[in-house]
Computed example of a mutant assay.
Amino acid sequence: MKVISAKEVEALFNDGKKLNIIDVRDVNEVEAGKIPGAVNIPLGLVEFRMHELDKSKEYIMVCRSGGRSGRATQFLESYGFNVINMAGGMLAWEGTVE
């Protein structure tokens, strides 16, 4: 499983790179703030919504601490998606939130 740090994601974000971020936290968790532009697909719905994703794109998976996003990363990898887990999740994120 590929992993990226929150600092690396923040640097890419601040450089204006187009990132495809999937936040797998529950809706009520996301309401407290998410990385700008992140799409919320709760972990329990990833299997049912993966048809919305494009296998030619790279996705960064995010959750609260990195555990659920790690499971989502492994699951999507098994279906041929290019996914990276953000280590430490939102607890490690120091950038802006929306």
Score class of each variant (00 low, 15 high):
residue 63 C to E: 01
residue 79 Y to K: 05
residue 56 S to H: 14
residue 51 H to Q: 10
residue 31 E to M: 13
residue 73 T to Q: 12
residue 36 P to I: 00
residue 21 I to Y: 00
residue 62 V to M: 12
residue 53 L to R: 08
residue 63 C to S: 07
residue 63 C to Y: 02
residue 69 S to F: 04
residue 49 R to I: 08
residue 63 C to A: 10
residue 90 M to V: 03
residue 61 M to F: 07
residue 96 T to N: 14
residue 92 A to C: 07
residue 53 L to Y: 10
residue 85 N to V: 04
residue 75 F to R: 02
residue 70 G to T: 05
residue 89 G to P: 05
residue 72 A to K: 08
residue 81 F to M: 06
residue 61 M to P: 12
residue 47 E to V: 11
residue 27 V to Y: 15
residue 27 V to M: 09
residue 90 M to K: 01
residue 86 M to Q: 05
residue 70 G to A: 09
residue 80 G to A: 09
residue 31 E to P: 10
residue 20 N to E: 07
residue 89 G to E: 12
residue 34 K to R: 14
residue 92 A to F: 05
residue 84 I to E: 10
residue 41 I to P: 01
residue 64 R to I: 07
residue 85 N to M: 03
residue 57 K to V: 06
residue 78 S to D: 08
residue 48 F to Q: 14
residue 22 I to K: 01
residue 94 E to W: 04
residue 42 P to W: 06
residue 36 P to D: 01
residue 96 T to M: 10
residue 56 S to C: 13
residue 23 D to C: 00
residue 97 V to Y: 09
residue 29 E to Q: 10
residue 69 S to H: 01
residue 64 R to Y: 10
residue 37 G to T: 01
residue 38 A to S: 00
residue 90 M to R: 11
residue 97 V to T: 11
residue 38 A to D: 00
residue 70 G to L: 12
residue 84 I to D: 13
residue 83 V to L: 08
residue 48 F to C: 07
residue 42 P to C: 04
residue 87 A to F: 13
residue 68 R to E: 05
residue 44 G to A: 05
residue 79 Y to G: 09
residue 84 I to K: 15
residue 49 R to M: 14
residue 39 V to C: 06
residue 31 E to C: 15
residue 77 E to G: 05
residue 32 A to L: 15
residue 68 R to N: 06
residue 87 A to W: 14
residue 35 I to F: 00
residue 96 T to L: 15
residue 54 D to P: 06
residue 69 S to W: 04
residue 29 E to N: 03
residue 27 V to W: 10
residue 48 F to P: 07
residue 28 N to D: 10
